[in-house]
Design a protein around this nucleic acid. Structure first.
Ligand SMILES: [Mn+2]
Ligand SMILES: [Mn+2]
Ligand SMILES: [Zn+2]
Ligand SMILES: [Zn+2]
Lengths: 130, 130
DNA sequence: ATAGTATTTAGACTTAGTATAAATTTAATT
DNA sequence: AATTAAATTTATACTAAGTCTAAATACTAT
């Protein structure tokens, strides 16, 4: 609960994540930083990603791959991954509250959060000749 | 698509997973094997887990932790993780088909599968003095 | 029995991330 | 402004989880 401290490194990484259309991994972020002429220490990138995540400025996504991805959209939303090409798209419709209530009732948990990852085949992969 | 080949190692591991009430990680499985007097090579445990998963005899769960967990229940179901104590419980109610249809329509994906992990506080952790 | 295929084993290797300690930067105090 | 203290970055070592490889065993089919 301390006030926000955006160092140059953190700000650069935040800008990068907010301005990209996809959901890059830490490795991809480092690669893009290098491309943009920045050279931050390996650990600094990880530290910054954690800091920004804890501060709520970005989201850390665990999509079942080996590496986490990062997301500049902080509003609650979900993701769908294409089995064929690996692309990750946004899912903006939330699970019905009724279902969450049912789960809470049946499991006796206070449900705080749900992480949903859909898997399927994206539009381009459905129509390979287009 | 070859016929099932359950070696001693694979059978032992399958039995272990099917007979336990929880969702052990590979490391926990190795530990329990050792406790039961078995000593399989490290790689064999991983190979067997993959084999059994591919054969559909067990399920591999990615709950957002560092290690995968394994599940002897092969029917479609989901999981809820307690933030406080880490326990993993079964969620047997499926997401409403209507919601899945909506996601498919909005994203233009063929949705094959959805992975859902709830997070919350379990009953015992809600009532610490009991 | 022999040859061919599949599996296990031991151990090297990879990937993604954490931990540590020194160097640097930033902020606070005199 | 100079000094001290706190926070951050850097380089590098280390860890955890899992894959890969090549030799040794075991199983299958002739
Ligand atoms: Mn997103
Ligand atoms: Mn289960
Ligand atoms: Zn695709
Ligand atoms: Zn609990």
């Amino acid at each position: 609960m301390s006030r926000l401290n955006l160092t140059t490194q953190r700000k650069t990484i935040l800008d990068l994540i907010q301005s990209c259309e996809d959901h890059p991994t830490a490795a991809e972020i480092m690669e893009r930083l290098r491309t943009n002429g920045h050279q931050f220490a390996y650990g600094t990138v990880y530290n910054s990603l954690r800091y920004l995540t804890d501060a709520g400025l970005i989201r850390e996504l665990k999509l079942g791959e080996t590496a986490c991805r990062y997301d500049g959209r902080t509003e609650d939303h979900y993701h769908i991954v294409c089995k064929k090409c690996g692309r990750v798209d946004e899912v903006l419709s939330a699970p019905p509250a009724e279902w969450i209530r049912e789960v809470a009732a049946k499991t006796n948990y206070d449900v705080h959060h749900s992480q949903v990852v859909f898997e399927g085949v994206c539009n381009s992969c459905k129509h390979p000749n287009a």
